[in-house]
Simulated assay, not measured.
Amino acid sequence: MKNADYKTFYLESITEINEKYYVLNGYPQQDYDENYYYEIHIESTRALSIIKTYIDEYICIDVTSENSLTIYYGEFYSESFDDGEFSYINYSYQKIKKTSKD
């Protein structure tokens, strides 16, 4: 990961589907649009309970291969930390349009 590639996501909350599948809710620091919800879905081959410690932090997910990724936490690349690379089954970043009440 390079400094220029470090695009952060502010993690507001997590929905645990099971111990290996989480939906991360928050918003990107760059390119934020208030008309959308933002979700990151991660399903891993192992338990991801460590991810709960990232709530109210800036994170950056670096997909290193088709089945491995690293989650960095910290607002800036120069101050970031990670818990190492891990294997994943499913990873997706979703930008969902908010519906308005008319």
Rank of each mutant, 00 (worst) to 15 (best):
K2H: 06
K2I: 09
N3Q: 12
N3S: 14
Y6S: 01
K7I: 12
K7D: 08
Y10M: 07
L11V: 04
E12N: 14
E12W: 01
E12L: 12
S13A: 12
S13C: 06
S13R: 09
T15F: 07
T15D: 05
T15P: 04
E16Y: 09
I17W: 04
N18F: 05
E19C: 01
E19L: 07
K20V: 06
K20G: 03
Y21L: 05
Y21C: 12
Y22W: 07
L24V: 02
L24D: 04
L24M: 11
G26D: 08
Y27K: 14
P28R: 09
P28I: 02
Q29I: 01
D31M: 04
D33Y: 10
N35H: 14
N35A: 14
Y36A: 11
Y38A: 10
Y38V: 09
I40M: 11
I42P: 06
I42S: 06
I42G: 05
E43V: 04
T45V: 14
T45Y: 13
R46F: 00
R46P: 00
R46C: 11
R46I: 12
A47S: 14
A47D: 14
L48N: 08
S49F: 07
S49H: 04
I50V: 07
I51Q: 01
I51E: 05
T53D: 15
Y54F: 15
Y54I: 00
I55V: 14
I55D: 11
E57Q: 15
E57N: 15
Y58S: 04
D62H: 03
V63W: 00
S65H: 03
S65D: 09
S65L: 01
S68N: 08
S68D: 12
S68V: 00
S68H: 12
T70S: 09
I71K: 07
Y73P: 10
Y73N: 14
Y73C: 10
G74T: 11
S78Q: 15
S80T: 10
F81G: 03
D83I: 10
G84K: 07
G84V: 00
E85T: 15
E85S: 13
F86Y: 03
I89D: 10
S92P: 03
S92F: 00
Q94V: 09
Q94M: 10
K95V: 11
I96Y: 02
K97Q: 13
K97C: 03
D102H: 03
